[in-house]
């Protein structure tokens, strides 16, 4: 009797009717999990310093977010993990050599976290309202404010506990300063260069070096349908195309796209930074344009700009265009009446 009554019961509710298991916190923690392989490889190659820098970023991001929310009397949203993820991404975008006390640069991650969480995210209204990717603004702030400290790169060391390390240039730095032949000479031969780039055994930011680990994380997110292929593929595709056509000085169609794809922050940027929900378009066609813009700007900065690496600035510039792109590609609502202006056309 009870069962039949239940069957016939009508539930009236307002839309949306489709409910999903997904919550903000679940997405944030899953993305953090996807970053784990790249982070572990960073710790493997750069030792305890990498661990300390990332932990410092995560801790200060979470603490600054909690403090800010307390000061302005907002409900605490620390549990949603977005502060944690911002800190993790920021830490993975910094060089491990920042963990240094003479000269003292350990304050840089803390200030960068403050800029990322409080200024870029919370002052704009909190998660979902920020125009720019918080972790990238934090990094840009640090790079412009402390250009020396932010460009001292540690040579990867295989021993975990080593605290003092040799400094060296990143592959893109060598490419910019000395050219392709010198880069191949440093790594022995081309195969060895590819091998170093893929495994992450090269100088760079903590989490950007290992292309394989980043791809594993990215494919995991694609499999879980947390990101779609549009932004990464158009980002990497455009960058590869431009690298192939213009990568070699003096000759067209002679560049090496693989070196550009696997060096710098290209993989980390294309898979984890440009695909941030809040700061990228949500319509598929707009995402393709967004990714292509990121790729083109990255290669423009790498090949013609003053910086050896351009992923960060490219994504930040395209972040500005995300709302416009979304508006431009909005599909017409079914049955909507044309406005007078459109009929005139």
């Amino acid at each position: 009797m009870e069962a039949t009554k239940k069957e016939h019961e009508l539930i009236v509710s307002v839309s949306p009717h489709v409910k999903s298991e997904e919550t903000t916190s679940r997405i944030m923690w899953t993305v953090s999990l996807a970053l784990l392989p790249a982070f572990l490889s960073g710790v493997y190659f750069f030792g305890l310093k990498a661990l300390f820098i990332t932990a410092l970023c995560v801790l200060s991001s979470v603490i600054f977010e909690a403090l800010y929310l307390k000061v302005v009397n907002k409900k605490s949203v620390i549990g949603d993990g977005s502060g944690f993820l911002t800190g993790l991404l920021l830490g993975m975008n910094l060089p491990a050599s920042l963990w240094s006390f003479s000269p003292f640069t350990a304050h840089v991650p803390i200030i960068a976290s403050f800029v990322a969480v409080v200024i870029t995210k919370q002052l704009f209204g909190g998660l979902g309202f920020n125009v720019f990717n918080p972790a990238l603004i934090g990094r840009a702030f640090a790079l412009i404010s402390w250009p020396r400290a932010m460009t001292i790169w540690m040579a990867p060391t295989a021993s975990f506990l080593t605290m003092d390390a040799k400094t060296t240039a990143t592959p893109l730095g060598i490419l910019k300063e000395a050219g392709m032949s010198e880069l191949i000479k440093v790594f022995g031969d081309k195969v060895s260069l590819y091998e170093h780039l893929l495994t992450g055994n090269r100088a760079g930011s903590i989490g950007e070096t290992s292309a394989i680990a980043l791809l594993i994380g990215g494919l995991f997110l694609l499999y879980k349908k947390y990101i779609t292929w549009h932004i990464p593929v158009s980002f990497l595709g455009t960058a590869a195309l431009i690298a192939w056509v213009f990568g070699q000085k003096g000759a067209l169609f002679a560049g090496d796209p693989l070196i550009h794809l696997f060096s710098g922050g290209m993989m980390l940027g294309a898979l984890f930074m440009a695909t941030d929900y809040v700061t990228s378009p949500s319509i598929r066609n707009a995402q393709l344009i967004f990714g292509a813009g990121c790729g083109a700007l990255t290669m423009l900065i790498r090949l013609k700009g003053g910086f050896p690496e351009g992923v960060m600035f490219a994504i930040l510039i395209m972040n500005c265009f995300a709302p416009i792109l979304d508006r431009g590609f909005r599909s017409r609502v079914f049955g909507a009446v044309k406005t007078a202006k459109e009929i005139k056309k």
Partner: peptide
């Protein structure tokens, strides 16, 4: 004497 926040005296820092 060492490493202040260089950004603040650049134009972008003015907006901040």
């Amino acid at each position: 004497n060492t490493r202040p926040v260089l950004l603040m005296i650049l134009p972008a820092g003015g907006f901040f």
